[in-house]
Design a protein around this nucleic acid. Structure first.
Lengths: 198, 198
DNA sequence: CGGCTACTATGACAGCCGTCATAACCGACT
DNA sequence: AGTCGGTTATGACGGCTGTCATAGTAGCCG
């Protein structure tokens, strides 16, 4: 475990991310977050004086850092480092979860983007930062696999775009098909970019 | 105009779709929909006895049919019909809107998916149907351009996934870059699939 | 003219929300 | 022993939500 050893503050951020990626931002209540984290309700205003917006922002930031750190782990787990293998590992995280626990949850950053991008609060900057903390290590990993620096960032953006969209369609259809299709169709393109120029 | 000539019922569905794609499902109130449509509040329970869920479902269905019908118009507008040209036209609809009106709105189907996929109501089936209504004519258009039937549906899924994800990242960053990147990187792959097999 | 249907109008209701105010606990330090 | 800062506890508040009940109006039809 050790999970429950983390302080109540971090547990609430984690719980907020989990509830947001399942039900969305608006449908996730502050009281619900505290209850899910096993934290006292009174701690909410103590740890998050900025209110719900601060809690959502931190949950989004946590998700972005989590995704960014996973990149290195995925690369380390590959037999031979190829862009298509990395993308397949990223998608497998979702197909595995959907096969094991059902299609109940998506990406919390996507949820916050859909619900808060137009509102103009600080959450829009938080989601932008989260995508950056996700894309940057991904682009660096691609560069380390031989992708020219000029294209690495573009392909990283493409990979995240396609993955997010495939997650969306998979949840809608309750079928991992969009995810497996994305891996199959995009793989050759990614590896071709890593091949040494002729 | 002619727009205002449509009955109040259709106007409310249209307004619901517009508000949902901007603020999300939960943040869009019934009273707000009626006001936006210039329709009397009392008509809500008359035209939508199924409540908010019915209204959201119909808004999602409308959006799916709209996207499906746009495919034929895009194809008709191309100088020479190629998969990459079609994808570019689909993305251009978003880059044009974002350039003209800002990044205030996304895809209503995506919003409904994020917020209602876990709830288990009828909306999840509505979003699944909407994606099908969108993907089917797209796959047929690809097949008409020479893409083998077996791959047409996969590429259609890939195109919608990537487009939805790029819309998401574009709104987060307030930058159309993800959309233009998707078109540039995915174009060659799509056209290669339409080339006659060697 | 009566009546019937389609639509509109309005107010009330219970429920949940985020936020705030206030007070109590509690371990630590001197 | 005392007190002080970091936590927790609890209740209240106003506002908004979806939904319902009820009454009212308009217009066609016999």
């Amino acid at each position: 475990m050790g999970e429950t050893r983390r302080g109540p503050r971090e547990r609430m951020v984690f719980s907020a991310a989990q509830l947001i990626r399942r039900d969305g931002v608006a449908a996730t209540g502050m009281r619900e977050v505290a209850a899910h984290a096993g934290a006292p309700r009174g701690s909410l205003q103590h740890y998050f004086p900025g209110g719900k917006e601060q809690l959502v922002d931190e949950a989004v930031g946590w998700a972005g850092r989590y995704a960014g750190k996973r990149i290195a782990r995925f690369v380390a787990g590959l037999d031979e480092p190829t862009p298509s293998g990395l993308f397949a590992a990223m998608a497998a995280q979702w197909t595995d979860e959907y096969a094991a626990d059902g299609f109940g949850a998506g990406c919390p950053v996507a949820a916050a983007t859909v619900e808060c991008a137009a509102a103009g609060g600080s959450t829009r900057e938080a989601v932008a930062a989260a995508f950056t903390t996700w894309r940057t290590p991904l682009a660096e990993a691609l560069a380390g696999m031989g992708v020219p620096a000029a294209r690495a960032d573009s392909l990283a953006t493409l990979m995240i775009s396609t993955l997010e969209g495939a997650i969306l369609m998979a949840r809608a259809a309750r079928d991992v098909h969009p995810l497996t299709t994305a891996v199959r169709e995009l793989g050759p393109l990614l590896d071709a970019a890593a091949a040494p120029a002729p």
